[in-house]
Design a protein around this nucleic acid. Sequence first.
DNA 1: CAAGATACGGAACAGCCATTCCGTTTGTCA
DNA 2: TGACAAACGGAATGGCTGTTCCGTATCTTG
Lengths: 189, 189
Amino acid sequence: MRADARRNRERILDVARRLLADKGADVQIDDIARTAGVGVGTFYRHFPTKDALIGELLVRKFRDRAEQIDRFREIEDPWEAFTAFVHDSAEKMAADAAEQNMWWAVTPEAMEYALGDRNALFERVRQLVARGHEAGVLREDFEASDFPTIMCGLGANMQAARQHAEVLGDERHDWRRLLEYVLDGVRAR
Amino acid sequence: MRADARRNRERILDVARRLLADKGADVQIDDIARTAGVGVGTFYRHFPTKDALIGELLVRKFRDRAEQIDRFREIEDPWEAFTAFVHDSAEKMAADAAEQNMWWAVTPEAMEYALGDRNALFERVRQLVARGHEAGVLREDFEASDFPTIMCGLGANMQAARQHAEVLGDERHDWRRLLEYVLDGVRAR
DNA sequence: CAAGATACGGAACAGCCATTCCGTTTGTCA
DNA sequence: TGACAAACGGAATGGCTGTTCCGTATCTTG
C-alpha cells in the first residue's frame, strides 16, 4: 500500500470519528472527505460503502475494549474486576460522542463486518463473567450476553439525554443511575 | 371540523402507526398519505410537519399510559403495583413495533409537542413511586425520572434485537433479563 | 337545493446524499 | 530519473423525500 494511501485512510477514519461526534449519525460522505482533505473518490477507494466505514469504526471499538479488558482481569476481587470493566466501558462511551452516534449508524451490514472482533471481545467478557460466577459474586443466571444488553441500554440513555436535553431540562436520562441499579441487581446475594 | 376531515385525520394516524411498524422510523409522508387514501396535501393540512405527526403519536402514547396507570394503582401491594406497571409498559412496547420505531423518530420538536402529556404521565408515575417509598419497598434514591430511563434502556434493546437479529443470532439483546436486573436493583432491602 | 366555506389531490419543487466514473496526479522502484 | 502502477479529485448521476401550491371537489348550512 502506498504511503499516501495509508495516510489518507487513517485521516478519513479520524475525521469520520470527529464529524460523527459533531454532526451525529447522519454525517455525509462528502463532508468527511472534504474535511479529511481528500476527494469522495478517494473515500470510496478505501471504503466500498458507508457501512464499511462504520463497520471499521466498530471493529476498532471492539478491539479497544478487548485490549482494555486485560487491565481489569488483573484486579483481584472478581466483583470489582467485573464492575470496574462495565463502569469503564460506560464512562468511555459517555465521554465519546462519536461512539454514541456510531451505534445509531450501525446497520446489519456494518455489524457483520465487525462480527469477528465482536465475538473475540465477547469471549473475553465471558471469561470475566465466568470468574464472577466461580467466585459466587455474580447472579447465577447472569450471562455474558447481558453485557451488550446493558451497554445498549446505557448508550440509548446517553443519546436521549443529549437529544432531548433542552426540552426535557434537568430530569435527564441519567444512565449512571440505571447502571447502579443494574449492577446492584446483578450481584449475587 | 368537517366529517371527512375528521375521518381522514384518524385514518392518517392509524396508517402512520401501521407503516411505522412495517417500514421503520423513516416512513415517508407520501407513503403514509397514499396508504391512507389521501393526497399529501391533505396530510399537510392535518399535520404541519412530520414532527407534528410523530408528536401526536407520542401524545397518544403518553395518554394511553396515563390512563392505564390507574389500573395499577388499585393493586394493594405497592411493590407489585409499581413493578406490574413497569412490566405492562414494557410488554406493550415489545408488542408494538410502531412504538419502538416511533421513539427513533422523535425529534426535540416532536417531544416538545407532547410535553404537556408527558408531564401529566410523569406526575402519575411520581405518585406510584411515592407510594413505594412510603411503604419502604423502593430504594430511597429511586426517582420517578428513572422510569423513562428504564423504558429507554429497554426500548433500545428491543430495537437492537430486531435490527441485528440475523447477524447476531440467538444471543439477542434480551430486554426481559435487563428489566429483571433493574427491578431487582431497585427494590429496597 | 344552491352557494360558499372547507377540504382535497397530486404534480412540482428543492435540497440532500450515496455512489460512480474517468481524466489527472503522485509515489515507487528499477 | 523515467515509466507505470497506484491513487487521487471532484463533477455528475440517480434516487429519494419533506413541503408547497393551486385548481378542483365535497360537505354543510340556510
